[in-house]
Amino acid sequence: MTIPSHPGPLTRADLDALRPPEGSERYELLDGAIIVTPGPGRWHQAVVVELTVLLRSNRPDGLVIKTAPFDVALAEDTVLQPDLLVAGRDDLTAKDLPTAPLLAVEVLSPSTRRIDLLLKRDRFAAAGVPSYWIIDPDVPSVTVLELHDGAYRAVQMRRGDEPVHVTMPFPLDFRPSDLLLE
């Protein structure tokens, strides 16, 4: 990959020009800097698949579930790809979600843990994403964060077979261990 000389932070147009048409890496833009992370591993994928099925089977009309790679354009210099998102059907374009989703979910991996726990969390809060879930397949655990006065507050932290009950973006009950089925 060649990054052209550029005055100031990179933009969404730069990101689009740099991304290969196919590949297993994830390309994101965070405050004008390109972040490239490796493709997800076995347990990461298992969690994303199981949670997608669970969310799709319980979602109300008018909402859609998308999995990465799918762009969430938060600003001209910030285009992120949460592992999973819930958004209003009418909010999507053919290319991306140009506004904050109702829910962003990140599944922790060794290569993305710090980005997911710090940088993405901060950017999603600043963008007004009402609910942010962090899932750790190694434990397994689910941390549910909800936006209050512009900052995320942990409203649930569940492990293993402990029940998770959420109301945002719609009512849903599950256990972290349910997400590691194969």
Score class of each variant (00 low, 15 high):
residue 91 D to Y: 02
residue 79 V to F: 06
residue 180 L to I: 14
residue 123 R to W: 07
residue 140 P to A: 07
residue 165 H to Q: 11
residue 146 E to Q: 13
residue 149 D to T: 06
residue 49 V to K: 12
residue 166 V to Y: 01
residue 120 K to R: 15
residue 103 L to E: 00
residue 159 R to Y: 09
residue 147 L to S: 00
residue 95 K to L: 14
residue 46 A to W: 07
residue 128 G to M: 10
residue 32 G to K: 07
residue 10 L to Q: 02
residue 141 S to G: 07
residue 18 L to Y: 12
residue 17 A to K: 10
residue 36 V to F: 07
residue 58 N to F: 00
residue 61 D to R: 13
residue 138 D to A: 15
residue 69 P to D: 14
residue 41 G to Q: 15
residue 106 E to M: 04
residue 34 I to Q: 06
residue 114 R to Q: 14
residue 87 A to I: 07
residue 162 E to I: 00
residue 110 P to N: 12
residue 91 D to M: 08
residue 17 A to I: 09
residue 59 R to P: 00
residue 26 R to T: 15
residue 89 R to N: 07
residue 21 P to G: 10
residue 181 L to H: 12
residue 129 V to W: 09
residue 136 D to R: 07
residue 125 A to C: 11
residue 56 R to Q: 15
residue 92 L to E: 14
residue 47 V to F: 04
residue 18 L to I: 11
residue 50 E to L: 05
residue 43 W to R: 15
residue 153 R to Q: 11
residue 83 D to H: 05
residue 71 D to G: 06
residue 21 P to I: 07
residue 171 P to M: 04
residue 134 I to N: 00
residue 162 E to H: 00
residue 157 M to A: 13
residue 169 P to Y: 03
residue 95 K to I: 08
residue 55 L to A: 04
residue 24 S to I: 03
residue 111 S to K: 09
residue 73 A to Y: 01
residue 13 A to Y: 03
residue 112 T to M: 10
residue 94 A to Y: 05
residue 25 E to G: 01
residue 125 A to W: 08
residue 166 V to K: 01
residue 44 H to A: 11
residue 101 P to R: 03
residue 115 I to C: 00
residue 137 P to R: 05
residue 148 H to N: 02
residue 118 L to Y: 11
residue 66 K to W: 00
residue 158 R to S: 06
residue 154 A to D: 02
residue 164 V to F: 02
residue 168 M to K: 14
residue 10 L to H: 04
residue 20 P to C: 14
residue 162 E to N: 01
residue 98 P to D: 06
residue 143 T to A: 13
residue 159 R to P: 00
residue 36 V to K: 09
residue 37 T to W: 10
residue 44 H to R: 06
residue 162 E to V: 00
residue 2 T to E: 09
residue 123 R to Q: 12
residue 13 A to K: 05
residue 162 E to L: 00
residue 94 A to Q: 12
residue 145 L to N: 14
residue 19 R to V: 15
residue 101 P to W: 03
residue 101 P to A: 11
residue 152 Y to C: 00
residue 50 E to H: 12
